[in-house]
């Protein structure tokens, strides 16, 4: 059975549960739809940060 990771959206505080993710991967908050990046995984808990969907100087 896959071990789930837990966290909360830093914007709307909705509790989140996900299959394993690694640092740097992103997900959408199902409640507020913001894009969240996994900055750390500490003992099965995700530390999430809101990131832009797109920046003006993206080009590669």
């Amino acid at each position: 059975m896959t071990q789930m990771l837990a966290g909360a959206c830093p914007e709307c505080e909705t509790p989140l549960s996900t299959p394993p993710m690694i640092q740097g991967e992103t997900m959408s908050c199902p409640e507020c739809l913001l894009t969240l990046r996994v900055d750390e995984v500490q003992d099965g808990t995700l530390v999430l940060q809101v990131v832009e969907v797109q920046l003006r100087d993206w080009g590669q």
């Binding site: 690694i22 640092q23 740097g24 991967e25 992103t26 990046r37 990131v51 920046l55």
Partner: peptide
């Protein structure tokens, strides 16, 4: 070095 891990970066990892 990137601002996030997308499909390509995950493949490389």
């Amino acid at each position: 070095v990137a601002d996030r891990v997308s499909w390509e970066e995950r493949q490389l990892i």
